[in-house]
Structures are given as C-alpha cells and as structure tokens.
Computed example of a mutant assay.
Amino acid sequence: MVSSQADKAASHARIVDKAAARFRRDGVNGVGVAELMKEAGLTHGGFYRHFASRDDLVAEAVEHALEQGNKRFLTAAARGGEQAFTAIVDGYLSTAHRDAPQDGCAVAALPQDVSRADDRTRAAYGRQVESYLNILAGLASGDDPAAERRQACLALSALVGAVAMARAVGDPELSAEILSETAAALKEL
C-alpha cells in the first residue's frame, strides 16, 4: 500500500513536470492529455486517477512552472542591488532563455494561455507577477516606493515582452537585437 501510494505520487509528479515543460514550449492547447500521459510513461486511462479534469492538470502544471521560474529569479536576486538586477536582465534576455521556453519562465511563456484559464491558474500567475515586481522593486536603490514599483512594472513588462517578441520573430538578427537592446535599455535605468 505504501509503495503504491509512493508510485502514484511519483507518477503524478512526473505528469505535472512533463506538462509544465510542454505547456511552456507548446502552449496549454498545444499538447493533449494522451500525449502527456504517454510522455510520462502512463496510459491515457490513468489520467483521472491523478486529476479531476484537464483544468486541474493545467492549474497544477502552471503553478509548478511558475515555482521553477521563481527559484531561478530568486537565485539571481540573492546577489542584491545592481548586480542582481544585471544578473536577472542578462539571464532573462539571454538566447538560452529565448531558445528553451520549456525550461524558461512561465510568466513569459504563458500569458495568453493563462488569460483564458480558470481562476486558480490566473491567481497563481498573478501571485508570481506580484512576487517578481516585489523582487525588482526591492533591488532599486531609491527611497520612493511608488517610483520603485513603477520601475519594477516597466522592467518586468520589458523582460517578458522582449522574450515573447524575440521568440516570435522569424529573423534571427532581429530576435537578437530585441534581446540585446532591451537589456541595454533596462541596465540604463
């Protein structure tokens, strides 16, 4: 019985992990349940032993993807001050982040999908955006909380938007320019 519960928990975690990566890469509607279950080494029929609905899987996978991105953001922010801001900008606007959405930030990969999702998923996304804004505002070196919050909103919007556009354009040179010029502009703040 204990082994069975541990196996079920491991299978559940595997499904959520696969879904989090695939949703970031292909979008929430870009992958089906049967395909995810097969990637997790399970049958399609076993899906409902783990989730009440596809929406439950989406919510849990998006929450997981957001947690993964938050860990990377917090690691970069731990440096503190301008050095941390530079590390966040350089990591976020890197070609590695652009080219591997399945491993990247769900805030950049999933805004359109989440805008159409259920309340649980939208709330998780909102909490992550709020967390990023607080981190970025905390890295500012001023004494005006309203100005720091405004700069954090601008910086996060620029980071997310630049990654989204760099992924979407077909011209590699334009893509690289979007990343590098946005990074340069943010560092001038």
Rank of each mutant, 00 (worst) to 15 (best):
S3M: 13
S4V: 14
Q5Y: 09
D7N: 13
K8H: 12
K8M: 10
D17L: 03
K18W: 01
A20K: 00
A21R: 10
R22F: 10
R22K: 11
F23L: 07
F23Q: 10
R25I: 07
D26T: 00
G27I: 01
V28F: 03
N29S: 11
N29E: 15
V31R: 00
A34N: 07
A34W: 03
K38H: 10
K38A: 14
E39L: 10
A40W: 03
A40Q: 03
G41R: 04
H44I: 05
H44D: 15
G45Q: 08
G45C: 05
R49E: 07
R49W: 05
H50Q: 03
H50S: 05
H50L: 04
H50K: 08
D55L: 02
D56S: 15
V58A: 03
A61M: 02
V62M: 02
H64V: 06
L66A: 01
G69V: 10
N70L: 14
N70V: 01
N70Y: 09
K71L: 09
R72I: 07
R72L: 11
A76T: 00
A77Y: 11
A77T: 12
G80I: 10
G81M: 08
E82Q: 15
Q83M: 08
F85R: 12
I88F: 09
V89Y: 00
V89L: 06
D90M: 04
G91Y: 08
L93Y: 03
L93C: 08
L93K: 01
S94N: 05
T95S: 14
A96F: 08
A96H: 10
H97P: 00
D99T: 01
Q102A: 11
C105T: 05
A106L: 06
A106R: 07
V107C: 10
A109G: 01
D113S: 05
R116G: 01
D119E: 14
D119G: 00
R120S: 07
R120K: 14
A123C: 00
Y125H: 12
V129L: 14
V129R: 08
E130F: 02
E130V: 01
S131P: 00
S131V: 12
S131K: 14
Y132H: 12
N134W: 09
L136F: 08
L136S: 03
A137F: 07
G138N: 10
D144A: 08
P145I: 08
A146D: 13
E148S: 15
R149E: 15
Q151W: 11
A152P: 04
A152S: 03
C153T: 14
C153A: 14
C153Q: 15
A155F: 06
A158V: 10
A158F: 04
A158R: 13
L159Q: 06
L159S: 06
L159P: 06
A162Y: 08
V163N: 04
V163T: 11
M165W: 06
M165L: 15
A166R: 00
A166I: 00
A166S: 13
A168W: 02
G170K: 09
G170N: 12
P172V: 11
E173K: 11
E173I: 05
A176V: 06
L179V: 11
S180E: 12
E181Q: 13
E181V: 02
A184Q: 12
L189K: 04
